[in-house]
Amino acid sequence: MKAILSIAKITLIEQIRNRLYLVILFFGATILVASLLVGALAPGYRVRVIFDLGLVAIEIFGLITAVFGAVNLVLQEVETKTIYLILTRPVNRMSYLFGRFVGLIVAVAATMVFMALIHILVIVFRPYQFQVFLERVDFWHIYPLIIAMSIGKMFMTTAIALFFSLFATSSVSALIFTVSFWVAGHFGTELAFLIDTSFKGVAAILVHFISWILPNFQYFNFRDIFSFPNFSGYQYVGKAWMYGVGYASFFLALSSFLFSKKEF
């Protein structure tokens, strides 16, 4: 446990001091403030546009931080050989991987929370429009939940990216695989519909079973589904998070297996 926490702490410090991380944070904050201009293009729905655009921006920048961080996490250590001085110590390879993962996730979550705080400031910048928006949206309850669920998505995506960084031959191919999973994860409901229309009976069950290997990020898309009438997301938040933890754990197990076989 101590080893995991030590490695996690160092990973977090490394991320925060990395210039790329700061650039991403800066651009994210800029986009959020610039969303005020975009909002001005939709009078009557200014706050809605700022709200939606901001949430998407927070997720995109969280994704960039997570994917670039995860893909380079181990690859860069191997290339720069900093990993030698870790693995020659009495540290379990699994603990090392887990520690790196935890550190990165904390860095990603910190990015998203920081951007969320800026986003809130931008949203409440125009008090009257915000009051009107509050009539339609239970903002103070739903917003933290949306951010928490977006972080859940990043949790899963980081684990996927880490696996592909160990599996693929280069960081570019790892990036491509991860983004493909990200996109596929948002079409989970479409896929389910296609399976139901194309297959029947046992075949449908089997194909559904296989399709469940792909993540379903729509469960975590509270920023899009909270406006459903009779929104029932609150009921399954805990279960969705457990699904996310199980999914991340699956890819961490695969990563751990691959990493245990890796030679340096």
Partner: peptide
């Protein structure tokens, strides 16, 4: 172990790096 060319985490100080290695060496 001393590698031929030691590589360290570029953005960390020697104290931070040695602190990590010390913790990992129990």
């Amino acid at each position: 172990y001393l590698p031929e060319v030691p590589y360290f985490y570029r953005n960390l100080t020697p104290v931070e790096v040695l602190d990590l290695y010390g913790m990992l060496s129990k």
